[in-house]
């Protein structure tokens, strides 16, 4: 357990998720990276685009495919002080999903808002 490095101004870092939860390890990698990054007290946000909105669905039970539930772990984000959580409006509506179907409260963004969010970052990490 090392000391958290102190930096002058926190960097704005956006984690962009674009993949469905279990077809690859990217969704889990993104979550692990996000939780790890939270130790460095930067200005973190996370965005779920396209297929990645499926990561947010309730009632995931991937035990029989030998995976850990993303839906179980995602609700820890606010506990890790990650509260800027966004999902793409069109991605939800295309898939017939509403925010009531999701495991944690997200802010729903249109295309312009997503472009603005991305443009305001110091770095973007895509998964």
């Amino acid at each position: 357990m090392k000391e958290t490095p102190t930096t002058a101004t926190p960097k704005k870092i956006l984690f962009v998720n674009t993949k469905a939860p279990y077809g690859s390890s990217l969704a889990r990698d993104a979550l692990d990276a996000l939780l790890a990054a939270s130790a460095y007290e930067q200005d973190l946000s996370v965005l779920f685009l396209g297929e990645a909105v499926f990561q947010l669905l309730r009632n995931q039970n991937p035990k029989d495919i030998g995976m850990k539930s993303l839906a179980a772990t995602l609700p820890v984000l606010p506990m890790y002080d990650i509260t800027q959580i966004y999902a793409q409006e069109s991605a939800l509506s295309t898939r017939g999903l509403s925010i009531d179907d999701l495991v944690l409260p997200v802010k729903v963004l249109g295309a312009d808002e997503i472009a603005a969010l991305m443009g305001s970052q110091g770095a973007i990490l895509s998964f």
Binding site: T18, M118, G119, Q121, A123, I124, S126
Partner: peptide, 8 residues
């Protein structure tokens, strides 16, 4: 550019 978003 300020920042890069890679789509893959």
């Amino acid at each position: 550019n300020n920042v890069t978003q890679s789509w893959y």
